[in-house]
């Protein structure tokens, strides 16, 4: 397969995944903003969404503070923000179009329809919260349709594996970024038993990655910070956890290696990261420093992106 084709597939799915993540961040902020301000809800939800989106620097260059209107526009519709939902869908579609024939009709229609329909939401200025919420649901639906079409219609060959790799590496990055921004509220020292503020912060984190229900099923316990960290970092059953993303990466990289008859630095690196994740206990992670652990992970994940590009995509 042409390296450029693999590159386009990888980035198409990466950007669809990012659009989905930004929609989830905004959804969590929207829910928080509905809480009374005494819970520390209203203002901080939007700030947190900007911080977790990874585009804080760009945002504060343009806006003085994280007002609801500014964040809602910047993260969803701004063409100046390369990670806004609009930009993500645009880039994903451009990548998909360049490799139109490597995609199934269903996948192409999912992303092309999304791009065509995006205009009907305009710049989102006149949307009430409810309407904005519906828009976010629509974005998540686009990601589901794209991902679902890939799973249901694509041949299981290298094209499919590159697509899965793009999604998994982005997802790992997204989850780690949330943890990186919010690690301080997860630290045991900061726990105030029954403190309303922390409780809402923890549940927000879980909501941002659609894990609130999963948490209850797995731990059958009230929301505790170290368990939240355990779920999002180490639990291999949780589809957005770092360990689960690396399960997916290792599996798909191995299939590539087998099909091409050669494994290389990407396979080794991914396997090492997975081994570190599966070898960790959450107590140990806290002892050696949650922040350091996440920072190391983010740098490994970025390095894997680079290694993978050098090995296959250029």
């Amino acid at each position: 397969m042409l390296s450029r084709t693999a590159d386009n597939l990888f980035w198409a799915s990466r950007y669809v995944e990012r659009a989905d993540f930004i929609a989830r961040l905004l959804d969590a902020a929207l829910r928080l903003s509905a809480l009374p301000t005494s819970y520390g809800g209203a203002g901080t939800g939007w700030e947190s969404a900007i911080a977790c989106s990874g585009s804080a620097a760009l945002f504060y260059e343009r806006y003085g503070d994280a007002s609801e209107a500014a964040v809602r526009y910047f993260l969803a519709f701004s063409p100046e923000n390369p990670s806004s939902i609009r930009s993500c869908l645009e880039i994903a579609r451009a990548n998909a179009r360049a490799v139109r024939t490597a995609l199934t009709t269903e996948m192409w229609e999912a992303i092309n329809d999304a791009w065509n329909q995006l205009d009907r939401f305009g710049r989102g200025e006149h949307m009430g919260r409810e309407e904005y919420g519906e828009f976010l649901e629509w974005v998540k639906g686009v990601a589901l349709a794209f991902d679902g079409s890939a799973r249901r219609t694509m041949l299981r060959n290298d094209a499919y594996w590159f697509l899965r790799l793009g999604g998994a590496i982005e997802r790992a990055d997204d989850t780690a970024r949330i943890l990186d921004v919010k690690y301080h509220v997860l630290l045991p020292e900061s726990e105030r038993v029954g403190g309303g503020l922390d409780y809402f912060q923890w549940t927000t984190i879980l909501r941002e990655v659609s894990a609130l229900t999963a948490y209850r099923w797995v731990y059958r316990d009230s929301v505790k910070p170290w368990l939240v960290a355990d779920l999002l970092i180490l639990n291999r059953q949780m589809p957005r956890s770092l360990a689960s993303c690396y399960d997916t990466m290792v599996r798909n990289l191995d299939m590539l290696g087998d099909a091409y008859g050669r494994r290389g630095p990407s396979q080794r690196l991914a396997r090492n990261v997975l081994a570190r994740l599966t070898g960790s206990k959450i107590e140990g992670v806290f002892q050696s420093g949650l922040h350091e652990y996440i920072t190391d992970f983010l740098s490994d994940n970025a390095k894997l992106g680079q290694t993978l590009a050098e090995q296959y995509l250029v």
Partner: peptide, 19 residues
Amino acid sequence: VEGTDLFVRDEVVYMRTTE
């Protein structure tokens, strides 16, 4: 292919692929 997918080495044309 596009132009950037191809390169020439020792007067032979090659395509950049994942393999």
